[in-house]
Design a protein around this nucleic acid. Sequence first.
DNA 1: CTGAAAGCGCTTACAG
DNA 2: CTGAAAGCGCTTACAG
Lengths: 333, 333
Amino acid sequence: MTSKRVTLLDVAKHAGVSRATASLIVRGKTTIKDSTKEKVLHSINELGYVYDRVAANMRSQTSTTIGLIITDIANPYYSELLVGVHNALDEAGFNVFLGTTFDSDKKQVALISTMLEHRVGGVILCPVSDSSHGTIERMRNMDIPLVHAVREIPPLNVDYIGIDYKYGATLAVKHLINHHHRRIAFIGGTSESSAWQLRKEGYCTALTDAGIEFDQSLVIESSLTREGGRSALKKALLNSIPPTAIFCFNDLVAFGVMQSLRDEGLTPGKDISVVGFDNVKEATLSNPPLTTIESFPRTIGSQAAEILLQRIGNPNTSLQRNILQPNLIKRST
Amino acid sequence: MTSKRVTLLDVAKHAGVSRATASLIVRGKTTIKDSTKEKVLHSINELGYVYDRVAANMRSQTSTTIGLIITDIANPYYSELLVGVHNALDEAGFNVFLGTTFDSDKKQVALISTMLEHRVGGVILCPVSDSSHGTIERMRNMDIPLVHAVREIPPLNVDYIGIDYKYGATLAVKHLINHHHRRIAFIGGTSESSAWQLRKEGYCTALTDAGIEFDQSLVIESSLTREGGRSALKKALLNSIPPTAIFCFNDLVAFGVMQSLRDEGLTPGKDISVVGFDNVKEATLSNPPLTTIESFPRTIGSQAAEILLQRIGNPNTSLQRNILQPNLIKRST
DNA sequence: CTGAAAGCGCTTACAG
DNA sequence: CTGAAAGCGCTTACAG
């Protein structure tokens, strides 16, 4: 910066009032005479004064930013979640500090530190699959408001917003069973995450209810990307009795699976049925349109933000655990 | 916060060194004896000290955050751009402060103020279509490093990274002409933005080169969303001589156009050709796969970040203007 | 390496 | 409303 920053004291001098008065005015207190208020506002314009919220927050030990830690921005599920968070925070005058872990615990640890160093007022964390317990414990010791979203981490004494993955998985698999499938693969994700375990439970429940035996060789883990879906499908087709239907961890994986099916000369929805999870916007447009489970990422984002704001406002409110019920969206696959 | 924050002075006392020494150590200066360094690091762990980067930045008049202002997070083009920015900044130890304008100038003005109030070290701005000149002027007066991305704003004395929209549009329209189309609509966007004007120029150039007369009634503006594309297509079909091909402002609009075509009982790529712009990942998966123009959002993001970091490092480097050349990606539409 | 002091730009509390 | 002072947690500069 070449020019020196204009301070509140400069403004006060220019307007001929005290610094204390100027401070009250910039913070919008109403106990000031209109005439002096106008003088000060005029000086602010004249001098091009910019309020230094950082200094103010530091002095008053408050914060107007919150940290959002997600695993992958390139996943439209998280874009939608981000939109929800963003909208809810905007209204409350909070700003978002964004971090992406790419599902690495090391990165997650580093990000949490960075957020704390930047004095965020709270954190919305979508934990990585194998979060180290130490990090979370550390955050709790810091007394910084924290809400988990999308995935849960074992010590459940923290606010959480997510959806009922088990029920969602049951819906998806029952749908396939209703279409007379008996060899149904479960593809994508890692068995370390709660979101995976719950889906697996739902998958098993649906199979059991239909009297179908569980077959471990039909469960294939993968990274949560299109690429993960592609390679996992290739493995699935090598099975001695290949599946006739695929339940995918999420839509992104399902897109990969569908691409891979086409590579193999198979038509998704005809030769092999596919069900996704999330109902990202692209699911309408895929070829053919993807049958999937609606999981409300935007709502999760906005509710996570609201829970966090509540806790920032009053750290002693009772713990919240909000589980949304998903729906089946039938399309052509 | 219930517990008082542990300060550097607490650490210094605990380790039996001076505050100045402790300060040098947390900042990783190497001029300190290893034995005392270890003592201090041990105390940091013991006390659970968290470095207050905000206080440090304030004292030293620096900043380790940069502001990123985009128009729409829900657009995968911007998600990709965000990934690029994020990656480049991460490496340099910078953090991103995110803001979304939803293409509203009012919101943009508010966001720039917020960013300045939070003392960002610089801003990457993807300007809204009709940016008010005053805001930009104000930023320049603040002497804060600024780079424009994606769209340009008239006074060109600021770093810019974008792609050659005119050339991209020419590629797209020539492609359609090569497939024997003569009635080609240009759908989406608003005529106020440079990115629109340049596409229009390219569109006109391609028409003129082929001896096709320009027809204003085939140019239909819309918001840059799927919904915008849907409604714009409906208008296009009401034309007395309807188009046989559509050049869309971006892929999102193209997806809307394709949905709308299906609603009308028409098959994209067969009854009416469609070309998009951006080559978002979903373009591979759409039904049918979308022919489009590759426009490198991730590269734009990372280069914008790098240019900004350069300028923060040395405010006097010469102005950069980086225009990438797009490619045509032929698929089935 | 230490120790005391000043200052980044603000808010807070208080006597007038 | 004013004015002077203290303090948020750090860095900086300087004498020892």
